[in-house]
Design a binder for these strands. Structure first.
Lengths: 91, 91
DNA sequence: TAAGTGTTTAAGTATTTACTTAAATAATAA
DNA sequence: TTATTATTTAAGTAAATACTTAAACACTTA
């Protein structure tokens, strides 16, 4: 999850993840949503991939990006631990 | 939540939050857990405060730090949205 | 008051990050 | 093969980040 926290700290990358909630998109389609060069987006996608927040699968010359929900599930568990502890302590 | 994501991207700050799950601690007690100067820890605490991940309350010359669970709750909701979407799309 | 303790602020610096443009790689189609 | 399109890699740079030490601030106690 270490890498996921780093990856999620950037607003552009969080926006990319939001886009992928609607449907899978190619790298090019994703870059159309931003005022930023394609290489920049490609680098952001690499970081999201390394953090296992997205999957990539090549279809011909296109690379489709998909949400990988496993780390999000881990994140829910991680955050819930703080909520629990916060309730039980210091009563 | 923007600030919270930034705050959570640093491993030292996540470790501080972990310490606070056990019990409230003063700035000095927190700094004892790290191989790092007190001013560094103080700066990390400032970032956690600004992100509303912790509360600070002064007791005499000591400043006690406490978990603030509200942003963690928001984080759970945020992450759950990705899990939901990931399940419903692309079936 | 002055001295001691706890904490934060200020100022400076090395490293990391997020971008850029140019070039390389990969697949498709003429 | 050559050209076109989609994407990534490489190289360089300005800005942000995480640390440091020194100084300031705040409270307690002799």
């Amino acid at each position: 999850m270490k890498e996921a926290f780093k990856a999620l700290s950037d607003p552009t990358r969080r926006q990319i993840l939001d886009l992928l909630k609607d449907r899978d998109l190619t790298a090019g389609e994703i870059s159309e949503h931003f005022n930023m060069s394609k290489p920049s987006i490609s680098q952001h996608l690499k970081i999201l991939r390394q953090a296992q927040l997205v999957f990539d699968n090549k279809k011909g010359q296109f690379v489709y990006y998909t949400l990988n929900t496993t780390v999000f599930q881990e994140l829910v568990g991680w955050a819930m631990d703080f909520i629990k502890k916060g309730e039980s302590e210091n009563e």
